[in-house]
Simulated scan of single mutants.
Amino acid sequence: MKHLLDRLVAAWHRRDFWVKAVSFALVGVINAFIDLGVFLVFYDWIGVPLVASNVLAWAVAVSCSYIMNSFTTFGRESGGKLRLRDYLKFVVSGIAGVTAATTTLVVLSLYLPVLTAKLVSILVSFVVNFSLSHFVVFRRSGDGGVAG
């Protein structure tokens, strides 16, 4: 058991690709609740239209995601510091994720309940956002974004 723990700690320090993916997913779970909560407030409680509610929820969640990922998943690459330039790159790259998520939400909401469509759209967003974060936003100079 100690050997496994030592290996996990070493992988965390190296920030291997799969460890980052798991960390990003854990941050993503927290952000999914933030995204969903904000979405439901705007859509169900306030009555804001579907797409606008989704974009507003994304704006809150992407800010939370940048902060959490800067200190955890990509802490080594960011030096554990928040930078306006990195935040703006994160937001701009997140536009691809919100576009994919919104497209998924709108199309699936024609066939599935809105809540189900929203949950699927969050998964689509995860794949797009992790790929861009890993290979573009938090890429260390000279490594092409590929770790371990």
Rank of each mutant, 00 (worst) to 15 (best):
G80F: 04
K81G: 10
K81A: 15
L82F: 08
L82I: 05
L82K: 05
R83T: 11
L84I: 13
L84V: 14
L84Y: 13
R85M: 12
R85S: 15
R85V: 14
D86S: 15
Y87Q: 01
Y87C: 06
Y87H: 07
L88E: 08
L88T: 14
F90Q: 07
V91W: 09
V92W: 11
V92T: 12
V92Y: 05
S93P: 07
S93D: 13
I95K: 08
A96I: 04
A96G: 10
A96M: 10
G97W: 03
G97H: 05
G97R: 00
V98F: 00
V98L: 02
V98C: 01
V98Y: 01
T99A: 14
T99E: 05
T99P: 01
A101S: 15
A101I: 01
T102E: 10
T102P: 03
T103H: 07
T103N: 07
T103E: 09
V106E: 05
V106T: 10
V106M: 08
V106W: 12
V106P: 04
V107E: 11
V107R: 08
V107M: 14
L108V: 03
L108Q: 04
S109P: 07
S109C: 04
L110H: 12
Y111E: 10
L112P: 02
L112Q: 06
P113N: 15
P113H: 15
V114G: 02
V114N: 00
V114A: 02
L115W: 07
L115V: 11
A117W: 01
A117Y: 00
K118W: 03
K118N: 01
L119K: 01
L119Y: 04
V120N: 03
V120K: 00
V120C: 11
S121G: 05
S121I: 00
I122T: 12
L123C: 15
V124A: 12
V124K: 02
V124T: 08
S125L: 11
F126H: 01
F126I: 04
V127A: 14
V127Q: 13
V128K: 04
V128A: 03
V128M: 07
V128W: 03
V128D: 10
N129V: 08
S131A: 14
S131Y: 11
S131T: 13
S131I: 09
S131G: 15
S131N: 11
L132G: 14
S133D: 05
F135H: 12
V137H: 06
V137W: 03
V137A: 08
F138W: 13
R139D: 11
R139F: 05
R139P: 04
